[in-house]
Amino acid sequence: MTIATADTLVRVRALRFAFGPRTIYDGIDLDIARGKVTAILGPSGTGKTTLLRLIGGQWKPDAGSIEFDGIDVHQQSRNALFALRKRMGLLFQSGALLTDLTVFENVAFPLREHTRLPESMIRDLVFMKLEAVGLRGAANLFPEQISGGMARRVALARAIALEPDMVMYDEPFTGQDPISMGVLIRLIRGLNQALGLTSVIVSHDVVEVLSISDYAYVVSGGKVLDHGTPEAIRASKSPLVQQFLNGEADGPVAFHYKSAKTYADDLMAARA
């Protein structure tokens, strides 16, 4: 087992993972630097969310290892894994707020579950976190009463309630209008700087993500295509990376989904 160096928080080595016959990851290596914003970019359907669930220990890889701060996530007992998870926050695409609790109670949830703090201190902590995401005024609303962007901000407040070392963002910008996207970008960057939070952003919104990240990986077809600083990625020679960055409809990733038969065969089959 390799010892993680001081500036690497998460170390992924030779990771393989498959959903039945479909291979999601075919041996990838990733390093996530402590205190930095790392982006993982890739087209839809390349299993970026899967990677976050693997890091969080919700799913087990078929081969390879994932270390968090030098601890192999998948070799831990249930209790040790839970202890490890308190050190990482995961921001789901949907926010995953508990619908039967108010915004306040949602943020208080991890505090109530994991600490024996007095009510007054929980109150202070929750309002501090809500203030940080600018939603102190929405404390008494229920999740169905707030917009999707606000729900993500509440989820962010909840994710940082236990002051974790790392927050993972799953597609934080998808389906957001430019204003809430701007708010989220500012928040991610701001929290990273203010709290020294390690951030992992999984996304296909290339421009926004590259604008705030320190380092980026481009993943497709179960492999890491390229990695480096945002500038290096933009200048990548890989045609696939270029197609992805520029949003071209056809290229190495074909416009047409793979078909066993030719177009002509399919048309003729209908006549027969």
Binding site: Q58, A83, G89, L90, A96, L98, T99, F109, E113, H114
Partner: peptide
């Protein structure tokens, strides 16, 4: 089922809360 479909259960798991217990 809805809690599962909206990731609430998995969100709890990631917050180190056992959804079976909670």
């Amino acid at each position: 089922g809805l809690m599962k479909a909206t990731d609430q259960l998995s969100g709890m798991e990631m917050m180190a809360v056992d959804p079976i217990k909670r």
